[in-house]
Design a protein around this nucleic acid. Structure first.
Lengths: 107, 107
DNA sequence: CGGTATCCATCACGATACTG
DNA sequence: CAGTATCGTGATGGATACCG
């Protein structure tokens, strides 16, 4: 489990919650893929060249736990799993755009 | 050396630059203090109850390297150092507000 | 196909002590 | 006052192998 809180200073700051939700080596890239539409696990792995199954699973699970993405399993052989943004996840788009613009503006 | 870049996937995404600039256990809290106005090192340390000198220095140096804050040294005894936001740093305020609102909206 | 289970490397963060 | 120098630790990411 290692269920230790990840970002627990004494001062609780809401903005940090958002930062934490996006913090992860691949999360923004994953979200960028999903802004494009529903994607299967394999599609994501192919798009995110270099990511391993373990890490992709891990990052997806965290996004799911934060209510940002949705995981739909089709119980069939071979398995099929689709990932999509929740409304909450879609509401991140303007934030990511702003962050994008900020980074671009001065580089 | 181990001078490996910290966040360098194959896919370069500007939004990640912004995320990286804000990533750090105390950075958002430091920025919140500085939105309030110019602060001395000791004032920041007092406000950020629990932070050590080493970590505060470290986080401040990173923010400075990213062009977000300004460090002004008064060459006197005892030393006096003031930290303030650069224009770039101030331009982060709307982003942090948006992140704040996002976190608050659904919690 | 879409995962787990292990094992391992790295780095951010921190406790503590010392200094110009 | 505002740092630097050491040493240590746990969370995070990754390489690899196996599974329903």
């Amino acid at each position: 489990m290692t269920a230790a809180p990840k970002f627990p200073p004494k001062t609780s700051c809401p903005a940090e919650k958002t930062l934490q939700a996006l913090s992860g080596r691949w999360k923004i890239l994953i979200l960028r893929e999903l802004f494009d539409g529903v994607k299967r696990f394999g599609e994501l792995q192919k798009a995110l060249s270099g990511i391993t199954q373990k890490i992709l699973t891990q990052q997806l699970r965290e996004l799911e736990a934060d209510g940002i993405i949705d995981r739909k399993v089709y119980p069939q052989i071979p398995p099929k799993v689709e990932y999509s943004l929740t409304p909450l996840g879609e509401s991140l788009q303007p934030i990511l755009e702003t962050m994008h613009d900020w980074a671009v503006k001065y580089h």
